[in-house]
Nucleic acid binder design. Structure first.
Lengths: 146, 146
DNA sequence: TTATTATTGAGATACATTCTCAATGGAGCG
DNA sequence: CGCTCCATTGAGAATGTATCTCAATAATAA
């Protein structure tokens, strides 16, 4: 069992909930890659590996993972969202390719700083934020030109 | 007829389309306020003023308004989106209150600059972007505390 | 006028997500 | 061990936003 999964187990038990096989398999799936997974992908992967977790359970467990702080939910716009685990990942924002759908990360600590200032100025208490840049990734830029 | 509506009319006619009463009433509604309207709100307002534009026409016309450049579509996350007209509005991002739903604007030109650099570094050709900060607005911060 | 085309409304459809609720199955107790 | 209690689950219904289909309508052109 991955260390992240163990942390999640601890979180679940501390909350007085049960660490079921369904919850475990969803967590393991999410922690198995650094890619950005959406709920449907998690469900499909689980089905293919024999787990019988239902869609509802996948969504419910993803919410718990987010609540535990081990996973971040990213809003990719147009109603799409994805999940990625945060372990060893500094905060970052996303470049979303509108051609191939690829999601690439970028970091710009100064942007974070500027956001904080903007909130202060407005008397706003930030809980989270989402910054996506949409466009053509390096690869698609070439193929579109061609 | 508002000057923005006239510009929209010109756009429509230049495109070889017809400037119908439905399209006019959707445009007038959007140009009537600087608030962030979602499609459903536009539809409701139109219904209450006697216009019989349908949901489909509202969405179709909003798309045309965006295409004309007179209106910007904002992704507010969680699949919600809103429209605002751009006339006399420099680019800005949004503070979205998760309690009362209020959307407030903020400007930070340096953030735009940093985004451009991030794109350059990644070989990414940006088409648009969306930056939202979610949290409690000044008003709700107080009432939650109380 | 008639033919052609653009536009529209109503409802069907799509899609991601959440909800409902009966069935399941641990956990703790006597 | 048997029993009760309650968290958890799965299947499918429901939600909300947005798009699509298609026949009816309206505008334009010939």
């Amino acid at each position: 069992m991955k260390p992240e999964t163990q942390q999640f187990m601890k979180f679940i038990e501390t909350k007085g909930l049960l660490f079921t096989t369904e919850r475990k398999s969803v967590a393991e799936e999410v922690f198995s890659t650094h890619d950005h997974l959406d709920a449907e992908e998690v469900l499909k992967k689980l089905k293919s590996t024999g787990s019988k977790a239902s869609r509802a359970t996948v969504y419910r467990t993803l919410d718990l993972l987010v609540e535990s702080g081990l996973v971040e939910k990213i809003d990719l716009g147009e109603g799409r969202s994805a999940y990625e685990h945060t372990a060893g990942h500094p905060h970052h924002d996303h470049l979303v390719c509108t051609v191939c759908g690829e999601v690439r990360e970028f970091e710009e600590p100064l942007i974070e700083q500027l956001q904080e200032w903007a909130c202060e100025k407005a008397g706003f208490r930030a809980i989270g934020h989402s910054l996506n840049i949409y466009g053509w990734c390096a690869k698609c830029k070439l193929s579109v030109k061609a």
